[in-house]
Amino acid sequence: MVEQARAGQAPRLQLEFAGEWFTLDPSRPFVIGREGDLTVDDNQYLHRAFLEVHHRDGLWWLANVGSRLSATVSSAGGAVQSWLSPGARLPIVFSDASIVFTAGPTTYEIGAHIDDASFSLSTEHRRRSSGETTVMPVGLTELQKLLIVALAEPMLRRDGVGVSELPSSAAAADRLGWTMSRFNRKLDNVCDKLDRMGVQGLRGGVGKLASNRRARLVEYAVSSQLVTRADLALLDDAALRETDED
């Protein structure tokens, strides 16, 4: 999956959020949250200090210093993806990576860029990701993908914006011309399918509200490129929306 480039001192790391760039100082930690070096948003659901980036042992590390929220970290193209839970940390080793997290109904994305990264995608995976080979391991139906696109529409339509408000289930169902029972049934199906594949945060239960499940679904689908901006065309396919498929 990956090829190691070289060992040595960690090169310059830059973070990009909502069109603003930050060059990190390896001599001190960089804090991301409701307060800190990168103030993401005045969102009551977001920790004051949520993520911390620091330099250690020749590498840049991303640590989750919050107590509730998790983040998804993926390489460009979504070939490699990690779930960063509270208390966990991982090295940032790819030249381009995406850090996506959800606080309440809002999903945020931060880009991480390293000039001379420690690892790169293998030639075989680059060939697969380029479109020469089509790989769809999730096996979503057209309507399941359409549902995800409807929920992710604000995030997919953004241009250089790191914050997106997710639509409610009622708004997404109305966008598709579906009844709420149909929408909820298909949401259950797609979440169950991804949960069986090991995607965390989609299983309902005590303390896990429907809004959080929708946000996690969008977070995973966008960061892994399960849906992309090109899929927005599906929303204009009236025949597809009217298809009766479980």
Results as ranks from 00 to 15, higher is better:
213 R>H: 00
215 A>P: 04
225 Q>E: 09
211 S>M: 13
225 Q>R: 14
209 L>E: 10
232 L>A: 12
228 T>H: 09
201 G>C: 01
214 R>C: 04
230 A>F: 05
236 D>G: 13
203 R>A: 05
224 S>Q: 03
223 S>C: 02
235 L>F: 14
193 K>A: 15
221 A>V: 11
193 K>T: 14
233 A>L: 01
239 A>F: 04
237 D>E: 14
222 V>D: 01
202 L>Y: 09
195 D>Q: 14
229 R>S: 12
238 A>N: 07
234 L>S: 08
214 R>G: 02
215 A>Y: 06
195 D>K: 04
194 L>F: 11
227 V>M: 06
217 L>K: 05
212 N>W: 01
210 A>Q: 12
210 A>W: 09
231 D>Q: 06
238 A>S: 10
201 G>K: 05
219 E>V: 04
217 L>R: 11
212 N>A: 11
212 N>V: 06
217 L>S: 01
196 R>S: 12
212 N>S: 03
204 G>D: 06
219 E>C: 06
201 G>Q: 09
203 R>T: 04
229 R>C: 01
236 D>I: 00
199 V>T: 08
222 V>M: 04
223 S>V: 12
214 R>S: 02
238 A>L: 15
234 L>I: 07
216 R>K: 14
222 V>L: 03
203 R>V: 12
196 R>L: 09
199 V>M: 06
217 L>N: 06
215 A>H: 05
230 A>G: 10
207 G>A: 10
222 V>K: 10
219 E>P: 01
211 S>D: 13
232 L>T: 11
228 T>E: 00
219 E>D: 14
197 M>P: 03
239 A>W: 13
196 R>Q: 14
228 T>N: 07
210 A>L: 14
195 D>V: 03
229 R>W: 02
216 R>D: 00
226 L>P: 04
230 A>H: 08
220 Y>E: 00
226 L>N: 04
200 Q>I: 06
224 S>F: 00
221 A>H: 02
207 G>V: 06
206 V>I: 12
230 A>N: 14
228 T>L: 01
194 L>W: 11
209 L>I: 10
204 G>N: 01
214 R>L: 05
204 G>L: 03
216 R>G: 05
235 L>T: 12
201 G>M: 09
217 L>M: 11
208 K>E: 06
234 L>A: 12
218 V>S: 03
212 N>Y: 07
199 V>Y: 07
240 L>C: 15
233 A>G: 06
224 S>I: 02
238 A>H: 11
227 V>A: 05
233 A>E: 15
214 R>K: 14
204 G>T: 10
205 G>C: 07
221 A>W: 11
237 D>I: 14
196 R>F: 08
202 L>Q: 04
227 V>K: 00
215 A>L: 09
193 K>I: 15
218 V>N: 01
225 Q>P: 00
198 G>D: 05
213 R>W: 03
211 S>G: 08
235 L>K: 10
202 L>K: 04
193 K>D: 14
200 Q>Y: 08
240 L>K: 15
216 R>V: 08
215 A>C: 13
230 A>C: 02
